[in-house]
């Protein structure tokens, strides 16, 4: 959902974002401690990075969000680091236990530990999300760069194509793709990825259009650099900022979409369980055992909230 990103993507907000790469920015003004002043002056970009980092460290909400995202990220790749339980091991004698210290999220109707099952659901959902974002970035970036760089007829054709993609609501487009490709994590990831391509294409295009007219591009051109070199060395490195912010934001969107699709029953086959599948399964027990669907939903809501908060903070920082 790039509402926020679009809203803050007005040129004056973004203009403050990237200074021309060759100026020597003054050393960070709000880090006047002795150690910093002894160091040799850094190049502009590194000094900025340092300031940004120290600004971010002072935002507790941001830190909590980062920690939570890192935690879920670790659970996605090395779930054994976080829990030693087996997500498929059944204990009929301890079925439907409510949350406690021993079972953080309680247990399900087979006595499986829900917290472990949620953590083991991360790999499926997070990898699907990463794949979706990768598809969106590769396709969107290519479309956007080609469109913004070449302009004219190509631009018009590509942007009309993006308009058409936007006219089919994202979830319905994803549903059509899932109908054609079948169920499972991979089709869902592809479907969601294609659904967020238009946003990336538009943002990249507007960034490329903006950077293309800046004086240093003109200077490089006058200096005899080829268009290919200008594109790779000057335009792309200076266009990726807003695209990266959008990628974080869209990771949250993709997680919601992937969880929604697996909630609707189009995800991985049992007994493997994506977050959406867990939530959907727990629905049948909502009256008696609320934790079975509400706690995993809360888990998903928290990760989306964290991603949105991170992207918002990064946006505010780059103003």
């Amino acid at each position: 959902m790039s509402v926020e990103s679009q809203l803050t993507h007005d040129p004056d907000a973004v203009l403050a974002h990237l200074d021309p790469p060759d100026t020597d920015a003054p050393v960070a003004a709000d880090a006047p401690d002795a150690a910093a002043s002894k160091r040799p002056p850094r190049s502009g970009r590194r000094a900025r990075l340092h300031t940004s980092a120290s600004q971010l460290a002072r935002k507790p909400g941001f830190l909590i969000a980062v920690v939570w995202v890192l935690f879920v990220g670790i659970s996605a790749f090395w779930p054994t680091l976080i829990t030693s339980r087996d997500p498929y091991e059944t204990h009929p004698e301890s079925a439907m236990l409510s949350p406690s210290l021993g079972h953080l999220f309680g247990t399900d109707n087979y006595g499986r530990d829900l917290w472990t099952r949620v953590l083991y659901g991360s790999p499926l959902t997070i990898k699907a999300t990463l794949l979706a974002i990768l598809i969106a970035i590769v396709l969107g970036l290519t479309l956007g760069v080609v469109s913004g760089f070449l302009g004219g007829f190509v631009d018009a054709v590509l942007m009309r194509g993006v308009d058409v993609l936007l006219a089919v609501p994202g979830l319905l487009l994803a549903l059509s793709i899932v109908t054609a490709l079948g169920y499972g994590t991979l089709p869902v990831a592809i479907a969601v990825g294609i659904g967020i391509v238009p946003g990336f294409a538009r943002t990249t295009r507007s960034e490329v259009l903006r950077v293309k007219t800046l004086p240093y591009v003109e200077a490089a051109r006058a200096g005899g650099a080829s268009w290919g070199r200008i594109l790779l060395r000057h335009i792309l490195p200076n266009s990726w900022g807003p695209v990266a912010v959008l990628a974080v934001l869209d990771a949250g969107v993709a997680i919601i979409a992937i969880a929604s699709l697996s909630f609707l029953g189009f995800g991985a086959a049992p007994p493997a369980a994506e977050w959406g599948t867990l939530i959907s399964d727990g629905r049948s027990y909502l009256i008696t055992s609320w934790w079975l669907s509400l706690l995993p939903s809360l888990f998903v809501a928290m990760i989306v909230l964290s991603l949105n908060h991170i992207s918002k903070t990064l946006q505010e920082l780059t103003r």
């Binding site: 967020i196 979409a257 929604s260």
Partner: peptide, 8 residues
């Protein structure tokens, strides 16, 4: 206000 929102 060309804002696109992917389905949630």
């Amino acid at each position: 206000a060309q804002i696109e929102v992917s389905a949630a």
